[in-house]
């Protein structure tokens, strides 16, 4: 796995410049809804969080899951159902999405970590497809129609999330908390062990770490955070459909991470922003999006494996 992630741990050490850039980014995100369409921004934030959660597994543990749509879309269904049918408050609904996705992650992860590398990817893909067929037939997902007209409700019973700015800042807050959590995980002793598994699994085993447990823990965390992103998306768009659990969605999140930079903190956010923008742009053209995304995939793999942020970091290192 070593060559999959080219950036080293040092790249994540916070410097004064990083803090400055972070502040600019946060201020920019706070100001953004006054300049851009809030729904579009929220879509970006949801997918950025999804990609970051996915990257926790691929970039920092070295496990390629081809089934993360199950967590993203599954959580969207759980949240949509709880909020619409049971009348739960939005924060409770989101919590259910997060816990539900984490639980699914526990089951899928338990099965998938029994094999490595290429098999791991195929198993996650197959299990996610099984969940897709389950969602297609289960009554609570409403089949092809999906759960529609999900009420956004009142956050903590107080804040009206139907106001565009209210929900935007709520989504932004959850996004920042989610990304911060991932940053903390990656930079903790636990995260160091994950990276050691990524770099050399056998050595990690010989050092006495129970690699399987660490892998499973990383898988569950990644799944739960992906679920958080999916739960948010269900509230933002007020529906949950089969699209979110399909294998194409699993491919999209891989593309976002690959394009932005596998194993970088900011890369998946950049990649998600680019892919979502591209999809919006192509939505009106007759050209199927898959032609463009597929081409980007091939170009990235052939000549651009570090991704945008990874290449910039490599360039900066060479200059300094």
């Amino acid at each position: 796995m070593a060559d999959l992630t080219l950036t080293q741990a040092e790249a994540h050490r916070a410097t004064r410049l990083d803090v400055l850039l972070l502040l600019i980014a946060v201020v920019g995100l706070i100001a953004a809804p006054f300049f851009f369409y809030p729904i579009f921004l929220m879509k970006m934030l949801c997918f950025a969080l999804f990609a970051c959660a996915f990257n926790l597994l691929l970039g920092f543990t070295g496990l390629l899951s081809f089934g993360h749509a199950a967590f993203f879309g599954g959580a969207a269904y759980f949240t949509a159902h709880a909020v619409k049918e049971w009348g739960w408050t939005p924060e409770a609904g989101i919590l259910l999405g997060l816990v539900g996705a984490g639980g699914m992650g526990l089951v899928m992860g338990f099965l998938a970590i029994r094999r490595q590398g290429i098999y791991f990817a195929m198993i996650t893909l197959a299990l996610a497809q099984m969940f897709f067929f389950f969602c297609l037939q289960a009554p609570f997902t409403k089949g092809e129609d999906g759960i529609q007209g999900v009420p956004r409700g009142y956050l903590f019973g107080l804040i009206d999330l139907n106001q565009p700015l209210n929900i935007y800042y709520f989504v932004l807050a959850v996004f920042l908390i989610g990304v911060f959590a991932i940053w903390r995980i990656v930079n903790s002793p636990f995260g160091m062990i994950l990276k050691s598994i990524r770099e050399n699994e056998n050595r990690a085993i010989s050092l006495g770490y129970s690699v399987q447990k660490y892998k499973l823990a990383a898988f569950v965390m990644s799944a739960a955070l992906s679920g958080l992103a999916g739960a948010l998306k269900a509230l933002v768009f007020q529906f949950a459909t089969l699209t979110d659990v399909s294998w194409q969605m699993s491919g999209e999140v891989i593309l976002m991470t690959l394009l932005g930079g596998i194993g970088t903190m900011v890369g998946p956010i950049v990649g998600a922003g680019l892919v979502v923008t591209l999809q919006n742009y192509l939505a009106t053209s007759p050209l199927p999006v898959t032609i463009v995304t597929g081409t980007i995939f091939m170009i990235c793999v052939l000549i651009f494996r570090r991704g945008i942020v990874g290449e910039i970091q490599a360039l900066l290192r060479r200059l300094s």
Binding site: G251, I254, T290, I291, G294, T295, I296, F297, M298, V301
Partner: peptide, 9 residues
Amino acid sequence: LFTFGLALV
């Protein structure tokens, strides 16, 4: 990943 992109195209 490459062949996945190829399949999409």
